[in-house]
């Protein structure tokens, strides 16, 4: 199939590994899904310390279940990406470790305290879910199937994140104030989650014309704001003055893009933002520290299939 034919046929879940697809499609889909997979992994690493720091046993159980889910989402997505035949899972994981793998802007920032947790697990996960729900109609079938399972699980993450926010915003004055400060720090980053405005998006046109991407950055950002500004206000959070957000006559919102720090955004996009580099290296060290587990599993598998002599033989 050539690109023209792909564009013509493009529709929800239209293409599977059985189809003969052009390199342009395979590379665009790989870039998109690999980015998504990397983001799941880096998000999980960012949140992991809060399993230990969770303030109650209920939170600890739920949060540990959530982090486990996210790692699972990463695994599902690497499979969906690998099935395009452009990169292997090992290559993608190696690239993530050596700093070449790209991932979501929000996961380059440090997560320092429990009051910041709902910024990720309510707002960022909520934003992610807006996007993921549209990707159930992506044209790469294995990606859409991964989204079915991800969306099934993700509702719990968002509701739990919202529950943490609610608890903090109905807590002591100090807690409310700290949560508001965390919100002010994270708000611009969350708005940038959806990437640059459509005019500046490098990859949108092609990905959209072959049905990989279902909604533009701007549409998704607006859909997020429509849903989540009322939520934030409901819990008593004040929306920061900047970036300026205008409410249109029809009740939808528009962001003044010039108020956002795009230099920082593109530094992050190149994996050159200092805290993000620390997080990439942190994961790399964790990965190396448990190399012996993977080695043991590999060795055991060989031994069990009877080809390698046992130490006791």
């Amino acid at each position: 199939m050539n690109v023209g034919a792909v564009k013509e046929r493009a529709g929800p879940r239209e293409f599977s590994p059985a189809d003969d697809l052009p390199q342009e499609y395979r590379e665009a889909a790989t870039r998109m899904i690999e980015f998504h997979a990397n983001s799941e992994i880096m998000g999980a690493y960012l949140e992991r310390p809060f399993i230990r720091q969770a303030p109650s046993i209920d939170r600890k159980l739920a949060f540990s279940a959530k982090v486990q889910d996210e790692i699972g989402h990463g695994q599902l997505l690497y499979r969906a990406a690998e099935s395009l035949g452009v990169k292997t899972r090992e290559e993608m994981l190696d690239d993530l470790a050596n700093g070449d793998g790209k991932f979501l802007n929000c996961f380059h920032y440090p997560l320092k305290s429990w009051v910041e947790v709902p910024m990720i697990s309510f707002f960022v996960d909520g934003a992610a879910m807006r996007r993921q729900a549209t990707l159930r109609r992506t044209s790469w079938e294995p990606y859409a199937h991964a989204m079915d399972k991800v969306c099934f699980e993700e509702g719990f993450h968002v509701k739990h994140g919202e529950d943490i926010l609610k608890e903090l915003m109905t807590g002591s004055q100090k807690e409310q104030q700290m949560t508001q400060e965390a919100f002010e720090e994270w708000w611009p980053r969350i708005i940038q989650f959806f990437g640059p405005t459509d005019d500046d998006s490098t990859h949108h046109d092609f990905a959209s014309s072959v049905g990989l991407k279902q909604k533009s950055n701007d549409d998704l950002r607006n859909a997020f704001l429509d849903q989540y500004i009322p939520k934030a206000e409901k819990y008593g959070l004040e929306i920061p003055d900047e970036p300026r957000i205008r409410e249109r006559d029809d009740g939808t919102y528009k962001v003044e893009e010039g108020d956002l720090d795009w230099d920082e955004f593109f530094t992050i996009a190149k994996n050159e933002y200092e805290p993000g580099v620390g997080q990439i290296n942190g994961r790399k060290h964790a990965q190396e520290a448990v190399q012996w587990v993977r080695d043991t599993i590999e060795t055991d598998t060989t031994a069990a299939s009877g080809h390698a002599p046992q130490a006791a033989d």
Partner: peptide, 10 residues
């Protein structure tokens, strides 16, 4: 408050 449609679906 009202949840996002995809959260309700999940």
């Amino acid at each position: 408050g009202e949840d996002a449609s995809e959260v309700v679906e999940s």
